[in-house]
């Protein structure tokens, strides 16, 4: 298990962050006509940094352990280019572009994972 974790590296976590980003963008697109809805996005860099710097250890029994939901999730409100009458900050063109980009990012991470898994499979098969 540990060997597989090492082989996949940070990409397994990256895949889940990418899927969460796609979900947020999907939520934005779904709410493009909802009054007062504020579009959100994930700051990938900050999430990845948080995943890397998760070497916080409990040195005192008063410390509260970091939980999945308590960790910084990197969600941020998008600053719209224009304002709208109903207080909605979803700009469909922006969201579509970001969604396409997020889908491409997801595929890139998938490709890397596919290669890694292919390597492991090759090593296990030994031919």
């Amino acid at each position: 298990m540990n060997m597989i974790d090492k082989a996949l590296g940070v990409h397994a976590q990256a895949l889940s962050v990418r899927s969460r980003r796609m979900e947020l963008l999907g939520l934005n697109i779904a709410n493009s006509d909802t009054p007062n809805f504020k579009a959100k996005d994930v700051d990938f860099k900050s999430v990845l940094q948080a995943a890397h710097s998760s070497n916080l250890s409990i040195t005192n029994k008063g410390h509260v352990p970091l939980t999945e939901s308590g960790s910084p999730d990197g969600e941020m409100y998008r600053i719209p280019f224009d304002t709208s009458f109903d207080g909605n900050t979803v700009e469909m063109n922006v969201e579509q572009a970001k969604f396409g980009q997020a889908a491409a990012d997801y595929q890139a991470t998938l490709n890397i994972l596919e290669n890694r898994i292919g390597g492991i499979r090759k090593a296990l098969r030994g031919d």
Binding site: S16, S19, E23, G26, I29, A30
Partner: peptide
């Protein structure tokens, strides 16, 4: 939050 949740979000929007 997973990829399959997008279906429910987009479905509710549809």
């Amino acid at each position: 939050m997973a990829l399959e949740d997008i279906f429910s979000v987009a479905g509710s929007a549809l």
